[in-house]
Amino acid sequence: MKLQKIPDGLWVFAGGGAGAFMRAVLTEIFPQTFLHLPVAVLCINVLGAFLLGCLLRFLAVSGQDAGWRKATRLGVGTGVMGGFTTYSSFAVGAVSIATSGSVAAAFMYVSASIILGFLACFLGQIIGEKLGFTSKNSQNGIKIRGVR
């Protein structure tokens, strides 16, 4: 079966299921909190932001968004990384920490997630671009303007 014949939604569904499954397994294995912070969700979100930044920039600079690149973007990017990371557990988790009395811990959790997530994603993008430009398939080895 050709890649193009597989509907976009199926890549997203399969990848999203796998990502959510991995997150569930990791939070089950590491339910511990460190300084009142749910470290598993924090690590999952920061790692996911890094990997998604890296993947999307690699795919964008290494060639056209078609064929295996599009399938990878949808399956691994939108699907696995999107399903692996979570915003709802992050927001509700922070509120739960705050309402249970540790407002300082909730503030730390939110700041750490956003600051580390942002930096990790930026770093991932830079690495992804480096990998994409040096890859054999690179069709546009020119400096890009903007990032879209």
Binding site: G16, L52, G53, M81, T86, S89, A120, C121
Partner: peptide, 15 residues
């Protein structure tokens, strides 16, 4: 809801 919401894309859009 975990699969529906996403942190990684939110960060990518901000960056």
């Amino acid at each position: 809801l975990g699969g529906f919401t996403t942190f990684s894309t939110a960060m990518v859009e901000a960056v």
